[in-house]
Structure formats: C-alpha cells, structure tokens
C-alpha cells in the first residue's frame, strides 16, 4: 500500500505540467464493463499476486481499456477541462497511476477501424503504439460453461509469448474484451494465460445511460514498437530503483526496512503481460 502511495507521489511531481492539456472526447460510452485483473508481479513468486480493477468503456465505434485509476483520472480531468477554469483554482492533479504492469490505455478501432492504439506515459514522455486488431483465435467447440448467467464458449490463442484460454459469450454480441483481446463473436468474460500469471475476469457490465465521454489526451506521442514498451517500463523501474537507492526521492524519512521492501518490489516487478 505504502509503496504505491510513494509511487504516486513521485508521479505527481512529473505530471503537473503535462496534464494541463485538456483531453478530448472521441466517443460516448454505451457499455461499461469492469474486469478484475489478477497477475503475478514477479513471475517467480506465487506470493506476488496483485489485483487491479480494470475498466472497458465500449462506445459506438471504439473502446477504451484502462485501470481504475486512469479511468477515474481521465474522467475527472475531462470534466475539469469542460468547465471554464477559474485561474485561482488549482489545476487538478493527483491520483495514483496504479500498478506499473497495468499502466496503459488501450483503444480498439482507433484511430482507424481495425486498429489498436496503445498509449503509456513514462519518465516525462508519452508513447504510442499502433497495431492491427487481427487475432487468430482457435475455437474449442467441445467446451462451454456458464459465467454470470451467460453461456460461454472456449477459445484459444497464442499471443505475445503466452497461451491464453478465453471464455466468450455470443449472448453479448460485442466483439471486445480486456487488454488487446478482441475479435471473438461475443464479449470475453474471462481470459487467463495457461500459467495463470495474468487473469482477467468480468466483474460487471452496465448500460451507460448518462453522458460519459471516452477521452484521449491531446498530447504529442512518441511512436514505439511493441518490444520497446517493456524496455521503457524496465528503464522506468530501474531509474526509480536508483532514485530510491540513492535517497533522491525522500518524501518522508524511510526506515531501512521499508526502503528495502520498496527496492525489492521494484526489482521483482518483471512479469509484463507481453513476453516479446
């Protein structure tokens, strides 16, 4: 808990100016799904299980997938930007970025139909990655199950270094899912790699009857390749590690034990979802 807290404080310093740019609305949310994302932070330790709430906003022609913190932060910032700003009011900053492993925004069918836009922020810079949505699923026709009252079918895929098992329901004809996963004839209610290191499970699906925008930040992005993302995040962890080690970030006096725990946490954060 403390660790994330310190992380976030650290980010707040960097975020301040960048987020002064108002975000733009690119679609309206029609369906809002929440997923529980369980993952091992350290692939070698079964005790490093973490748990993050993820949001999938499905609009009329695109969707956006983020962790709960980014979801809330984006919507607050959007609402804040809509109002005529009182110069005396402080700029809205703050909030945690969440876990480094789930710190991204994924847009499907955006900027063009059939494309995925993957964005992230690291070390004062925004990065973006554009990919094709095409996914080669293998349907397992023998298997079906019921999840949350919906009949689900099984589908398999090898994606970015891992074998996944997905359960989708044709009763929800939204060809979408958590992370970059899409392209099945129904919403993915549950997907997990066969080693159970990354597991997304649908928590809720709700029709959005009020006006909720799907937003994107109007900032300039640096184009990257898929492999680069992990490099960038590793570097970020490394620089954080060095900063903590050399006591450059001393938000509050840290006990040696606490510091050791943070450093250990940083060192053992290695299990990114994509293995490239």
């Amino acid at each position: 808990m403390k660790k994330t807290h310190l992380f976030s404080l650290f980010f707040v310093f960097l975020m301040h100016n960048i987020y002064a740019q108002p975000p733009q609305s690119i679609d309206k949310t029609k369906w809002l799904c929440t997923y529980n994302y369980e993952f091992l932070q350290d692939s070698s330790s079964i005790n490093s299980l973490k748990n993050v709430q993820m949001y999938l906003q499905i609009g009329s022609h695109l969707s956006k997938f983020t962790c709960v913190n980014s979801y809330l932060m984006d919507s607050i910032r959007y609402l804040d930007s809509e109002k005529a700003r009182d110069p005396n009011q402080p700029t809205l900053v703050g909030g945690s970025f969440g876990h480094i492993i789930s710190d991204y925004r994924i847009y499907k069918n955006y900027p063009k139909n059939g494309q995925i836009l993957f964005t992230t922020f690291s070390d004062n810079e925004f990065y973006k990655l554009e990919q094709q949505m095409q996914m080669n699923w293998k349907l397992d026709l023998q298997k079906d199950t019921v999840i949350m009252g919906y009949t689900c079918h099984k589908a398999l895929i090898f994606y970015a270094g891992r074998d996944y098992i997905a359960w989708y329901s044709p009763q929800i004809p939204l060809s979408d899912g958590p992370y970059k996963f899409n392209g099945l004839p129904g919403l993915i209610l549950k997907i997990s790699d066969t080693m159970r290191q990354h597991c997304f499970t649908l928590n809720s699906i709700k029709k959005v009857t009020y006006d909720q925008s799907i937003t994107q930040l109007t900032v300039s992005y640096v184009d990257i390749k898929a492999e680069d993302y992990i490099k960038i995040k590793r570097n970020e962890l490394l620089s954080l590690y060095r900063m903590f080690q050399s006591n450059m970030v001393t938000v509050s006096p840290l006990s040696e034990e606490h510091k050791a725990r943070i450093l250990n946490g940083l060192k053992t954060t290695n299990n990114f979802i994509e293995k490239l």
Binding site: H61, N109, N113, G114, L139, L141, D144, T151, H153, P170, P173, L174, S175, G183, L184, P185, G186
Partner: peptide
Amino acid sequence: VSGLSVLVHQKGNANRIISYSITDE
C-alpha cells in the same frame, strides 16, 4: 454495419458454433 458477429452453427443449435466472422467497416 461494422462490428457485427456472423456465426455459422449447427442447424437449430446456435450454441454449436462452427465458425464466425466480424463484419468490417
């Protein structure tokens, strides 16, 4: 119309999906 699921299945049993496609834009 894009994003629609088109399913081929056994006659009379929509749960036995044989193949599918998602419509493009």
